[in-house]
Computed example of a mutant assay.
Amino acid sequence: MIVTSKGEIIMQRLYLATIVTASMLVSGQSFAQVITIEPEQRTIIREYVERESVPVIEMDRDLTVGQSVPEDVELSTVPQQWGPSMNNYRYIYTDDRVYLVEPSTRRIIQVID
């Protein structure tokens, strides 16, 4: 048994909290959500976009997974036909691609082309 003072315990906890926080910041991408979209589901999404004439959003830059969608871009609600695994997400359609977006962070989590 190791006997330490209260000050040492507090410093150890602070040190540990700092390490955990720093590692979360450095490896933020590793905490990104992962969603698997099967080929059949991709077909359903593509057919929906074409059938419903989903409006194309004009963007002045290329988008990639992990990027945030600008605040002035309206996110569309994911239709039920896309499946229950996508109910919590939103999407945008631009450059002939569907971008699945996590609404609370506005980060792109998947590109469907």
Rank of each mutant, 00 (worst) to 15 (best):
M11D: 04
T43N: 08
S53G: 04
L25I: 15
I44M: 02
Q81R: 06
I35R: 10
Q29G: 04
V26P: 10
D62I: 08
A17V: 15
A22D: 11
S23K: 10
V56W: 00
Q41T: 03
N88C: 11
I44Q: 02
V54Q: 01
T77V: 05
T36M: 09
V78W: 12
E8W: 02
A17P: 12
R61I: 11
I44E: 02
Y48Q: 01
F31I: 04
I19T: 04
V65Q: 10
T77H: 00
L16A: 06
E52M: 05
I57D: 00
Y15V: 08
A17Q: 15
E58K: 02
V54A: 02
K6S: 12
T18A: 10
S5A: 08
R13W: 13
V54P: 00
R42C: 10
V54E: 02
S5V: 00
G28V: 01
P84D: 15
L14S: 13
L63H: 11
T64W: 06
Q80W: 01
T21M: 13
I45N: 05
M59G: 09
V34M: 07
R46L: 08
Q41P: 01
I57H: 01
V49S: 09
E50R: 08
E71I: 08
T21R: 07
Q67E: 15
V69S: 06
A17I: 15
S85A: 15
I37S: 03
M86G: 05
P70K: 07
Q12A: 13
V49L: 01
T43Y: 06
R46Y: 07
V69D: 04
S5N: 11
A32G: 14
D72C: 12
V65K: 09
V3E: 08
Q80Y: 02
E71K: 11
V56P: 00
A22V: 13
E50S: 12
M24W: 04
V56G: 02
I9L: 12
I35F: 03
Y15M: 14
R13M: 14
E71A: 09
Q80H: 03
P84G: 08
T21G: 06
T64Q: 05
G28E: 03
I35H: 02
V26R: 11
V69R: 02
S27N: 11
M24H: 08
I2L: 14
M11E: 12
D62T: 06
L75C: 05
E8P: 02
D72R: 10
S27P: 05
V73D: 01
M86T: 15
N87H: 14
Y48L: 03
E58D: 09
E47N: 10
S76G: 06
I45L: 04
E74N: 13
D62S: 14
R61T: 15
Y48R: 04
L16N: 06
A17W: 15
E40T: 09
V20E: 13
E52V: 05
P84I: 14
P39V: 11
G83T: 06
S68T: 11
P55I: 01
S23E: 07
P39N: 07
G66L: 05
D60G: 10
V54G: 00
M11A: 14
T43S: 08
P55R: 12
V3C: 04
T77Y: 00
D60W: 13
P84W: 14
A17T: 15
G66Q: 10
Q41G: 01
E58L: 03
I19Y: 03
G7C: 09
M86I: 05
V49T: 08
P79I: 01
V26F: 15
R51H: 07
E52D: 06
T18F: 15
L16G: 04
V78M: 05
V69K: 03
